[in-house]
Design a protein around this nucleic acid. Structure first.
Lengths: 201, 201
DNA sequence: CAATTCACATACGAAGCGTATGTCAGTGAG
DNA sequence: CTCACTGACATACGCTTCGTATGTGAATTG
């Protein structure tokens, strides 16, 4: 509480607001989250929020941005562990599905995000995950591992597929089983884009 | 204004509210639509709305239901014109993409719907379009036209693919061209699920 | 024809958001 | 060292909007 420089205090305030907003948005959704409530829980008031983020939507954007950045990092780490480019791409998609099961991501990024901020691909942070999928497809296409395709369009579709799968899983009675079904289905779907090889799998 | 029985008047009031809400939700979105405003434009007050639909969300549900029913009919009509089962299925998907370009459908069903009502597949009206896709897949599977798959999971993914494609198109600079790219991409994607035949297409 | 029901309007209270204003701790110039 | 200033945050206010509680008049029923 002492020994901190001014700018550290400010950054801490900002971080507290971000965390409180993130928690509230994840737990009760954007519309239900009262700024008075969650700023108070952070030991602050709406004054601080308006100072740092302009308005409620501004805070929401910052929260989405933060989560999206975390997702991108996690996807990259995951893909890096894969044995080859093809499996890396598959892991991107499956990773996306699995992450979408986390309430923060499901509710904030996938459910409220599009309603509040519009098309995910044109968010201020330019949704890293769609980009990651498209880049993966570009690599595969360059290596001749997939059939000729429009990678932009296909990336959108695969992102949509993952996202819808995730909400399905989240609402299913047996989520672990649904995860299996979804991942298997996703593999099937993407497998169809693979270029016919002499070998097989 | 005369010669109408009482129940006709009531139905008319209900229809007016439904239409006014639908218009407002489509044009400015659920959150921005003021009940006082659009009921007044229908020559009524909030009192009538609460009487018929319980609350704002209730009206929204009714609107979604109505649009969804229209979509289902249109998809069925479209698929019926296709020369064979395979093409019928493709037309379902493409029809879904094209319909998603209409502001009413895009904004109400695809954008705000999931945020307000949650998982589309568990809506009161049980989203007819996802069902249509799954039924189509079931038929193809029974006829041995597609590879073995989990039709439920795959239907969700194709619905997600169509939906994301549509928001992409809607936000693109050249929508007609984007429609072409999206439909071609969709065909490619679904083509990958086709079972290898001796003949071709 | 009187009583009741029902469709809708009006009136009221409670949040919640955004802005305008206040306050107090840091910071830099002389 | 101190005085003016900036900037971080709190407080106060008004406006909009939602939901409910109540009122009213027309249609229906016995």
């Amino acid at each position: 509480m002492a020994g901190k420089t001014r700018s550290e205090m400010i950054a801490e305030t900002r971080a507290k607001l971000l965390a409180a907003g993130r928690k509230a948005f994840a737990e009760i959704g954007y519309a239900q989250a009262s700024m008075d409530d969650f700023t108070a829980k952070a030991g602050l008031t709406r004054g601080a929020l308006y100072h740092h983020f302009g308005d409620k939507k501004g805070l929401f954007e910052a929260v989405v941005s933060q989560i999206d950045a975390e997702m991108t990092v996690r996807l990259k780490e995951r893909a890096a562990k894969a044995p080859d480019a093809w499996e890396a791409f598959i892991q991107d998609g499956i990773g996306y599905i699995e992450m979408a099961l986390e309430p923060e991501i499901s509710r904030i990024v996938l459910r409220d995000g599009p309603a509040i901020l519009g098309d995910p691909a044109s968010w201020p942070t330019t949704n890293g995950c769609i980009t990651a999928i498209r880049e993966g497809l570009d690599r595969l296409l360059a290596q001749g591992l997939v059939v000729d395709m429009d990678t932009e369009a296909t990336a959108r579709m695969l992102a949509g597929a993952s996202s819808y799968c995730a909400t399905w899983i989240a609402n299913s009675e047996d989520p672990p089983q649904a995860v299996e079904r979804a991942c298997a289905g996703y593999r099937r779907l993407v497998e169809g884009l693979r270029r016919a090889q002499s070998g097989r799998d």
